[in-house]
Design a binder for these strands. Structure first.
Lengths: 234, 234
DNA sequence: ACACGTCATTATGTATACATATGAGCGCAC
DNA sequence: GTGCGCTCATATGTATACATAATGACGTGT
């Protein structure tokens, strides 16, 4: 079998070199497709062709099919009988529902973090926030997006609940491609900064209730902006 | 190909006749295994043999493997490299984490239900509760368990958030086999009834906060009992 | 007697072959 | 000209074949 990167000449699915996730092709393909979907490089509604992807990865259809099944169980793609797989397209109504749940889960993360955070984790969050302030530049949107993600990830960890962190991460990943669009709204950057500040100060004060509501509001405000964005640009 | 039920002579995986879920074998096998795992007929830690299951269902390994991948993505089974699949075994620590999340999600269901419930749904919940009271008999534990499930399902629906309902259902399903054991504790039945009553009255009064905390407490108390049970009989 | 290395068996991961359903394109009838 | 039905191509679902890594047994050496 040729190396998995061999077939990769200017395809729309460039193989990530750091692909040492699972040793099996199915796992690697799943991870790669997850990343492509989350980043928006594969747009919602796109059809995923087994043979095409198999050729791009230089493998047979079998591991691709298994990757599809895993992604379908994570609700990242939809399998429609014999009509193939397509990247799940999330409508406005479903987004509202998902943000409501995400707000509650992220709120719980913040609440637990307020009760359990260790000085080292607090320092890390402060450092991330400082970097986020410096990256508050409409030109470097992608950097801002990544650092923002780091902030939330740090709160997940501070919650000291690995399962909660995992669930929240999965949900965040499901709406990632939609979130990424709304980051481009000019008002979102400064709003994010001040909302994060509120969360951080509540956590620092070990005020669980305030941390919960601050984080919930933060997520809900993002959801509102996202809906505005979708209403305007479709 | 022989009918999917043909090979089923006194196996440990009796085929459910109402198996018209997905038209594909992979889907049917996934649903069947889900049910077997949730009911506890396949115990946590059991190893799932591809060939054995394929023979029991009268199909080849391919759809079985695809079912395994879906179940693994739902965290119901673990795939350990080339060492096969085993039903996920959840330790006490992980159970605590999961119940903390489930309490929050069920609490959110109850909160939304308190705000949104329609008279018809309220009547349905009352009817279910009445049946649950009648089933409060240590001999008919399984019936009690099923009606209890109906109650929670009715609250999910009353929340009018399909995504939330789905997430909560999945989580409930993950710990189903552990929940089922604790139902056998003698104090759990009357406790469940009174805790449900508190939730119901809060929902009837459209008191969102009270509904949330009542449901959260209900789930947390169940979690506590489950931990006691595991500590004693684990 | 115990430990270690080697080998055989077996089950998983992957590739390929085959069956069949879905959708497109075309022709015909009204 | 439009709508219906047929045929065919293609892609998915399933089965089978093959390669390889992991498990267990056996034998040998200390």
């Amino acid at each position: 079998m040729t190396d998995i990167c061999a077939q990769n000449e200017s395809n729309c699915l460039p193989i990530d070199q750091n692909m040492r996730g699972g040793p099996t092709f199915a796992d690697r393909i799943r991870r790669q497709l997850e990343a492509e979907i989350a980043s928006g490089r594969i747009e919602p509604g796109s059809r995923l062709d087994e043979q095409e992807i198999a050729q791009q990865f230089g493998v047979s259809r079998t591991p691709v099919r298994e990757a599809f099944r895993m992604l379908a169980a994570s609700d990242l793609v939809e399998l429609r009988g014999r009509q193939g797989a397509m990247v799940r397209s999330i409508g406005g109504h479903a987004l509202v529902e998902m943000f409501q749940v995400m707000a509650e889960l992220e709120g719980l993360c913040a609440r637990l973090a307020a009760r359990r955070i260790k000085p080292q984790q607090m320092a890390r969050i402060d450092a991330i926030h400082k970097r986020l302030e410096e990256a508050c530049d409409p030109n470097g949107i992608d950097a801002f997006y990544d650092i923002n993600q780091e902030f939330h990830e740090a709160v997940y960890e501070a919650s000291c609940n690995a399962f909660l962190a995992d669930q929240t991460r999965k949900l965040r990943n499901q709406v990632a491609s939609y979130r990424r669009r709304v980051t481009r709204m000019p008002t979102r950057l400064p709003a994010t900064l001040s909302e994060h500040s509120a969360v951080i100060e509540a956590i620092r004060a070990h005020d669980a209730e305030r941390a919960h509501s601050a984080m919930r509001d933060h997520v809900n405000l993002l959801g509102d902006d996202l809906l505005d964005f979708l209403a305007a640009y479709g």
